[in-house]
Design a protein around this nucleic acid. Structure first.
Length: 321
DNA sequence: ATGGTTTTTACTGCGTC
DNA sequence: GACGCGGTAAAAACCAT
């Protein structure tokens, strides 16, 4: 079937802030300061070392807030930011309107034959229109997912998962009344969880274009409708990332893992922010190993309150017995 | 909307460098 | 004195209902 190839409209290539960053990605991995002391792991063909990959992600995230802040000053125009403009231009030029009345231009009713013809046209027009709509939606979303994924330094496999999740959401018509941005962010978050390289919700939110509430709502919805089996986040999976950001010793990091392990057995993690727990564990561990890290340092890196660290870390230490 | 939980905020006194 | 630390009390945020 000959498709009207309207999709060849030249896509305005928007200079992504990520372009320059991802260019520097490889170098960062090579030069990663962690690599002096740590081995680099290659998993599924990607250069993802558990420690170094995270350090790189860190660099990228540092850029995030910067243009995010820039973004925020213009939040009013948020809806205009970023999305490939093709959407609107495209639609405006293309979408056809076929009146539902079987009348000609003068208001006379049509012959039986014409009526059938119009009916057929409507059918096809409808098909193309919806097809276009969901494809535009998808393209937008995939671009968004890609942008967030690179800002978070996620490997390609994880992006793949996010894309698949989004496609499913779209197919199951979960997008009604939900923003593409929110659902994309939710897909990315879910993907990191499924891939076992979790980012915190907050991290995903900072690189997304939506508020936290909107994103978490979309995420919950996604989980429920797609019936994704998602166990609650395991704090231990976050340890490596924050440990490398803080540049603690291996010993401390290991100690933190143990503390969390014990704490988990005692049920300390129920209903609590895993990041807060990790921060506390790192603090407790740094005490045990004699490596002095201040609470405020950890609090700043993990983006939790010092008070949270205080309340949790003593519990972790007690649980150790 | 509500109530129970956790996190955050603001503010304290204490010890140390 | 500045700083890090532990704590309290109250507000705010979060979640399930």
């Amino acid at each position: 079937m000959p498709l009207p190839d309207s999709e060849t409209t030249p896509r305005p290539r928007r200079p992504e802030p990520n372009d320059s960053e991802s260019a520097g990605l490889d170098e960062d991995i090579e030069d990663c300061p962690e690599c002096d002391s740590r081995p680099v792991y290659h998993s599924n063909g990607e250069l993802v070392c558990e420690e170094c990959g995270l350090v790189v992600a860190d660099n990228l995230i540092d850029y995030g807030p910067e243009w995010r802040a820039f973004d925020a000053t213009q939040r009013r125009e948020r809806s205009r930011v970023g999305a490939p403009r093709t959407n609107t231009i495209h639609d405006r030029g293309l979408s056809t309107k076929i009146d539902w009345r079987d009348r000609d231009g003068y208001g006379n009713s049509l012959s039986e034959r014409k009526r059938r013809e119009m009916s057929r046209l409507r059918t096809w027009d409808e098909r193309f229109r919806t097809r276009d709509a969901s494809e535009r939606n998808l393209r937008h979303a995939l671009a968004e997912i890609d942008r967030m994924a690179s800002a978070l330094g996620l490997p390609a496999t994880t992006r793949e998962i996010a894309s698949v999740l989004y496609r499913r959401a779209l197919e199951e018509e979960l997008m009604l009344g939900r923003s593409i941005e929110a659902m994309s962010a939710a897909s990315v978050y879910a993907a990191t969880r499924q891939a076992g390289i979790p980012r915190s919700i907050d991290e995903v939110v900072t690189v997304s274009r939506v508020e936290k509430g909107e994103m978490t709502r979309a995420y919950r919805y996604l989980l429920r409708e797609l019936e994704l089996p998602m166990s609650p986040p395991d704090p231990i999976e976050y340890v490596g990332r924050y440990a490398s950001r803080l540049e603690v010793t291996d010993e401390t990091e290991q100690r933190a893992r143990e503390l969390l392990d014990v704490g988990k057995r005692c049920g300390l993690h129920h209903g609590r922010d895993p990041v807060g727990l990790v921060a506390s564990a790192l603090y407790a561990a740094s005490r045990l190993t004699g490596e002095r890290i201040t609470q405020s340092e950890i609090a700043a890196v993990a983006d939790v309150c010092e008070m949270t660290i205080r309340t949790h870390y003593s519990e972790l230490l007690e649980a150790e017995e």
